[in-house]
């Protein structure tokens, strides 16, 4: 099966599609040595993300092993994740400072 999506970190809950994916098509990505497939439940544009698992409303979307922000609605596995259902949350800079 040809790869059409990339997983950036083993802890991610989304992959990035490297070709357009129509609803009903398979999204195929590599995770370590394994090749994994899931079915897209809606159209995913080129370069856009698809949820690998059900993400609750207010849940975090993880890519590169880091949080991209929080969801504004439930995003079931196989659905498109983008700016319409994901928003950035303010940082807590003071908590990131380290003792000098």
């Amino acid at each position: 099966m040809e790869i059409n999506a990339l997983l950036m970190d083993s802890g991610d809950n989304v992959v990035t599609c490297i070709s357009e994916v129509a609803a009903g098509q398979q999204v195929v990505y590599r995770s370590g040595e394994k090749t994994i497939a899931l079915t897209a439940l809606e159209d995913i544009p080129y370069c856009h993300k698809i949820a690998l698992v059900d993400i609750p409303a207010g849940g975090e979307v993880i890519k590169y092993g880091e949080s991209l922000g929080k969801t504004s609605e439930v995003i079931p596995a196989g659905h498109w994740v983008a700016h319409h259902n994901l928003f950035s949350v303010p940082r807590d800079y003071d908590s990131e400072m380290i003792p000098v």
Binding site: C47, E66, L68, G69, A82, H83
Partner: peptide, 24 residues
């Protein structure tokens, strides 16, 4: 800053939040 970042072009290109853009 989150009002202008990511830009409309970034969003169309699959970058949904400033955080995602920054991490890349």
């Amino acid at each position: 800053c989150r009002a202008g970042q990511p830009t409309p072009g970034n969003k169309a290109g699959g970058l949904s939040t400033l955080d995602e853009k920054s991490l890349g």
